[in-house]
């Protein structure tokens, strides 16, 4: 793996970590889950690759912050499962975070499109614009 790949992987990991909490809240917004089923939802279509164990510390934190509630339920197929669901406070927080997230996505997209359109400009025009900026 060369430097660029490693760098890309590091940044992708950071990005995923950033949105993982929101994705977890989003999944629990629709229905309650136990840890494994939540992981399956998050990784189901392969769009979110993650080390499955990293979900649990986040769930514990959300639980401690009162954004999710949890309860152990006995399972007839094996060990008990811990079910998680969003609390009323968690739902409110999630609803208020979603517009912020959409705004950030739009901002990134808009910045990228802006940079592209500027690159498409002829070189002469770009130099003129730069001179005007300096002047």
């Amino acid at each position: 793996m060369d430097y660029l790949d490693a760098e890309k992987e590091r940044r992708v990991t950071q990005l995923r970590k950033g949105i993982l909490e929101l994705a977890i809240m989003g999944s629990l917004y629709r229905q309650q889950h136990y840890g494994y089923s939540l992981v399956r939802v998050l990784t189901g279509d392969g769009s979110l690759l993650l080390k499955e164990g990293t979900v649990y510390p986040i769930l514990t934190r959300l639980d401690k912050e009162g954004l999710v509630r949890s309860e152990w339920v006995e399972s007839d197929q094996g060990p008990p499962r811990k079910y998680y669901s969003l609390t009323a406070n968690g739902r409110k927080i999630f609803e208020s975070l979603m517009p912020e997230f959409d705004q950030l996505v739009s901002l990134v997209k808009q910045s990228r499109n802006g940079a592209k359109s500027r690159q498409d400009q002829p070189l002469g025009e770009r130099i003129l614009v730069k001179r005007e900026e300096k002047g």
């Binding site: 136990y34 840890g35 494994y36 089923s37 992981v39 499955e52 164990g53 649990y56 510390p57 514990t60 197929q77 094996g78 060990p79 008990p80 499962r81 811990k82």
Partner: peptide, 20 residues
Amino acid sequence: SDQKELLKELGSHIYESYCA
């Protein structure tokens, strides 16, 4: 208490994942 809780949960996850 945190240790026990996380270990129990990981144990449950491992079992579910193993069955799948």
